[in-house]
């Protein structure tokens, strides 16, 4: 593993060394390191590219790292990862993709992830995306989450720069007494474009979803945020889309809430605009220049 590999792994998966527990590291379309354990099994798919990750029932306080790195140009890497989370299990899953593309051709990674959560299981899922190097870096993650009674899923996605184009698609189906929390942070600059869409079906009684999206669009970049929350039972849905716009950037937020049951409580909030003038003034009154103040506000906002 060279320094670029290490740097990418550190950024997308907080990996400074070989992780403890189960892991699978994928580089340029191939698995380059794996540890499958008794508690969390990792099995290569037979019919297509990808792996099955099987978390046995009742497994607690364990983690799985499945980072992907790409360090070449002109590559399209499509991978299907399926996660089976056993009853009562409680695990942390760290995914993420780092692309360093030194060429002028596009590199692309489409991670198609499906999570099957059995009863009362709990998952914290962290996904970071990063791009470096001259060439195009394209990421199209698809995440599907199926939640059985009493399960909880917390998802944190972070795309903090360098990704030329991304189309993120997240779908979830929630049964009774479930909780889904999605926190998303996206920064785009230059001519980048990021599209993100959420489709959540609250099918079960007492199912909850909260989506918190914070985005910063700079220069000529463009971001689109689509959400579609449907409530079919007594359920709670809250979507919060906050955006800071700078330069000539654009942010579009398209909410859809679809209540099919009078007991469904669904809310969408969107606040998009430039950095509040008084925030800049406050920081400048502490001695920061305009630019330093702007950077600090953005850093805090995306932290």
């Amino acid at each position: 593993m060279n320094n670029i590999d290490k740097e990418l792994l550190k950024s997308v998966a907080d990996l400074h060394f070989t992780p403890l527990g189960s892991f699978n590291i994928r580089k340029n379309g191939e698995s380059v390191g794996r540890n499958s354990t008794k508690e969390i099994e990792i099995i290569t798919k037979k019919d297509k590219s990808g792996i099955d990750i099987i978390v046995k029932p009742g497994v607690k306080n364990k983690s799985v790292h499945i980072p992907v790195i790409i360090t070449v140009g002109d590559l399209t890497d499509i991978v299907y990862n399926d996660f089976y989370i056993g009853e009562g299990a409680d695990v942390i899953i760290v995914a993420g993709c780092g692309i360093h593309n030194p060429t002028l051709d596009d590199s692309r990674h489409d991670g198609i992830h499906a999570f099957y959560l059995e009863k009362n299981s709990k998952v914290k899922y962290i996904e970071k995306h990063l791009g470096t190097g001259k060439g195009g870096k394209i990421l199209n993650p698809i995440t599907k989450i199926f939640m059985k009674n009493g399960s909880e899923f917390e998802m944190e996605t972070l795309q903090i720069g360098g990704v030329t184009y991304s189309k993120r698609d997240t779908q979830a189906v929630l049964e009774d007494n479930t909780k889904l929390l999605i926190k998303e942070k996206i920064l785009t600059t230059e001519d980048q474009e990021a599209i993100t869409s959420f489709d959540v079906q609250l099918k079960g009684k007492n199912s909850h979803v909260q989506v918190v999206s914070r985005s910063v669009a700079k220069e000529n970049s463009k971001q689109s945020f689509y959400s579609n929350i449907s409530g079919e039972a007594e359920c709670f849905g809250h979507v919060e889309c906050d955006g800071i716009l700078l330069d000539k950037a654009q942010i579009i937020s398209v909410p859809k809430v679809d209540a099919k049951c009078p007991e469904a409580s669904l809310v969408h909030e969107a606040a998009i605009g430039k950095i509040a003038g008084e925030q800049l003034l406050k920081l400048m009154s502490l001695g920061l220049s305009h630019e330093e103040a702007e950077n600090l506000i953005i850093k805090g906002y995306l932290s």
Binding site: R214, K282, S285, K299, G300
Partner: peptide, 13 residues
């Protein structure tokens, strides 16, 4: 050094 009449709120700081 100033303390404003209406202090500013920051998300994330």
């Amino acid at each position: 050094t100033i303390a404003f009449q209406q202090p500013v709120r920051f998300k994330g700081l």
